[in-house]
Amino acid sequence: MARIIGVDIPNDKRLEISLTYIFGVGRKTALDVCRDLNLDPGMKARDLNEIQVTEIANHLQKNYNVEGELRRTLAQAISRLRDIGCYRGLRHRRSLPVRGQRTRTNARSRKGPKKTVAGKKSVKK
């Protein structure tokens, strides 16, 4: 397995797909990298030699925010929203959907498993 920027990319997949295993690299970025370095996007990742692997790593680090740097940037942006106390920051703090989605139903992936609350007991006369 080739290791690029601390990520093992799969050998058996096409290069354009293998590069998407790096955080911050999608299909378009992977195709752009292949085009810039004159690599065939259809070649298997196992066919890369060491020189090509280092070229890919250097190109990604120089031209794109990927892996640790991108994660750090996102975490700083979210913590800034929390610190200034804006609406989006409050939603992040409470682990609720941030972009205006409804929460009466759905939003389970963001809110977590259901927490059942006991309902009102009826009063008998």
Rank of each mutant, 00 (worst) to 15 (best):
R102F: 06
Q52Y: 05
C34R: 00
L96V: 11
G119R: 08
Q76K: 15
V53K: 01
P113M: 11
Y21F: 13
G100P: 03
D12T: 07
T54W: 05
P97N: 12
K115A: 09
R80P: 02
G100D: 03
T20Y: 03
E67F: 08
V117W: 07
T116G: 09
E50G: 07
L48G: 00
S79W: 11
A57F: 05
I9W: 00
M43C: 07
K125M: 10
K125V: 13
R14S: 02
L19D: 00
A118V: 09
K28Y: 04
R27G: 06
G112D: 13
V7T: 07
V117P: 01
K13A: 03
R108M: 12
R94P: 01
N11M: 05
D12Q: 07
F23H: 12
K121W: 07
K120M: 10
E67K: 03
S95K: 14
R27K: 13
L60Q: 01
I22E: 00
D40N: 13
P113E: 10
A107F: 06
G100H: 09
V117G: 06
Q76Y: 11
V33T: 04
G42A: 11
K125P: 13
V25I: 08
K62Y: 02
D32G: 04
R14W: 01
N65P: 03
G112V: 13
I9G: 00
P10C: 04
L74I: 14
K124P: 05
V66S: 02
V123T: 15
I78M: 12
R91L: 05
I56M: 05
V66E: 00
K125G: 09
L39P: 00
G85L: 10
K125T: 11
R108T: 06
A77C: 15
